[in-house]
Nucleic acid binder design. Sequence first.
DNA 1: TCTTAGATGTGA
DNA 2: CACATCTAAGAT
Length: 204
Amino acid sequence: MELLHRSFFARDPVTCARELIGYELVWNQCAGIVVETEAYTATNDEACHTFFRRSAREFIAAHRAGDAYVYLNYGMYWLLNVLVKGGAEAGFVLLRALEPVRGIKLMKQRRAPQRAPDRLESLCSGPGKLTIALGIDGRDHGRDLCSGAHVGFRVSSAKVQVAAGPRIGITRAAELRWRFTKNGSAFVSGVRQPPQQTAYAQSR
DNA sequence: TCTTAGATGTGA
DNA sequence: CACATCTAAGAT
């Protein structure tokens, strides 16, 4: 498995979040194309954990670029981030949606307790959904995503169009257009208001 | 098609 | 006590 190199995450978080669209997230037997991300920067971003949480700042100091930052949200959903550091600014990329490509049966089994609809488009269409589908939880916090044999981002040769829009589900700094989606994808979250911003080509 | 409530754990 | 969520249920 040819994984995305750690140097990919040694740039600024906004660039990483945008360019991660189209790569494949592999998690043991399951895999999906990354179709939605959000960027959070360690400084000047009130929505980032680093703004209020000492533990987040300590995590950045103690870990390497490409390590997983996993935390529990609303008391019930694990959210997967990738640590970005080494560029102009450190921060995180939140994985928000996947287009399932492998291990679909297993992912559906994991999501079944939620009584989730059987539609493939809604299997991983949200940050809490995709962690359930992939079996990600707090034990993955701090995990190296760039050198393991079973987990990481697989290099893709596909060319994708990426759209940018405001981050969703947050209250502070909501005006920043740091949410990125694969243009026109039916697998993104927030179907009520799909991003209709200017799209641009992204070469691989 | 939209808005609402309720489940639920943790860091500060 | 605020939260980077999700679903079912009820109103429109």
